[in-house]
């Protein structure tokens, strides 16, 4: 089998996969690399949440490449890899249609409008590429409409922060302090985002471009920051919504370096009485 045939086959396969994946690696840019490299393995990694489609070439020590020998030895493996990927593609993200987006937005807004309070446990995972393990912290989040939020970390340390008007009320293992963030526009923006992301009402925000997709478990909305200041810290917010309840089940804040913070909500309870005193330090 010659190079052109291989190119054609790969293009067909990749384009087929592409129909299931929103972010697409340009196949024409991908193929010529095979001519120059001895490819031992091609991996398609389906990172559902990050929604990226990565292809990695593992170079062998043999620098001279023979495409036909590559084909003989690796085509079956390659097809198997593709099949496996296609097998999992049903769990991968699909782009939502305009109609689906419109219905989804309406439902989220309707739920958000009815939500006066939220109490939810959460696990937070800080992922950094160089770490062996994500850093896990856990706690409870309380929200009271229109804009009171308290995050209490209980494990592995005691720390709580209340967002109140232009202030942050912090209780750091018993040490209480107030931080005035009135002049800090960036912080204000982050706070607004947090409030909006919890209530799920952030589709009118002109400061983001949005992408909507879905998988078997969730609707996934990706918010790309337009604001240059904010982009320095967080380039993208990814919110996962429960497909039945239309509430936020996961928030992922992705930094320009692709390191991220993931917050997964569980045991969410809505509209239970939360007294205002809870939001005092």
């Amino acid at each position: 089998m010659n190079y052109l045939k291989l190119k054609h086959m790969l293009s067909v396969k990749i384009n087929f996969i592409n129909s299931n994946v929103r972010e697409f690696v340009d196949s024409s840019a991908l193929i010529p690399k095979i001519r120059d490299k001895s490819v031992s393995r091609i991996e398609f990694s389906d990172k559902t949440v990050l929604d990226t489609f990565s292809v990695s070439f593992h170079e062998t020590k043999n620098t001279r490449t023979d495409v036909s020998s590559f084909m003989k030895y690796h085509m079956s493996k390659l097809i198997l890899t593709f099949l496996l990927f296609i097998g999992t593609a049903s769990y991968a993200q699909k782009v939502m249609t305009a109609q689906e987006i419109s219905t989804f937005k309406q439902r989220v807004k309707a739920v958000a409008q009815k939500t006066k309070t939220i109490g939810s446990d959460f696990d937070q995972y800080k992922h950094m590429e160089f770490l062996s393990n994500d850093i896990k912290t856990s706690g409870k989040m309380l929200f009271k409409s229109p804009n009171l939020v308290k995050w209490s970390y209980t494990s592995p340390f005691q720390y709580s922060v209340i967002f109140k008007e232009d202030k942050l009320l912090i209780n750091d293992e018993g040490k209480k302090s107030d931080v005035n963030v009135g002049s800090n526009q960036l912080f204000k923006k982050l706070n607004q985002l947090i409030v909006k992301s919890i209530s799920g009402d952030m589709f009118d925000d002109a400061e983001f471009t949005m992408n909507f997709s879905k998988n078997a478990e969730a609707y996934i909305v990706t918010f790309n920051s337009k604001d240059e200041e904010l982009k320095k810290y967080i380039k993208q917010f990814v919110l996962h919504f429960d497909t039945q309840k239309h509430t936020v089940v996961e928030v992922r804040m992705i930094e320009p370096s692709d390191d991220y913070t993931q917050i997964v909500f569980k045991n969410r309870k809505e509209n239970q009485v939360i007294k205002d005193e809870v939001f005092r330090n």
Partner: peptide, 21 residues
């Protein structure tokens, strides 16, 4: 957060409790 990457080579990150670097 401190991680040794190699001999005399460390990565040092300071982040808020929320995880923002």
């Amino acid at each position: 957060i401190i991680k040794k990457l190699a001999t005399e080579h460390h990565r040092i990150v300071f982040a808020t409790e929320f995880g923002s670097k």
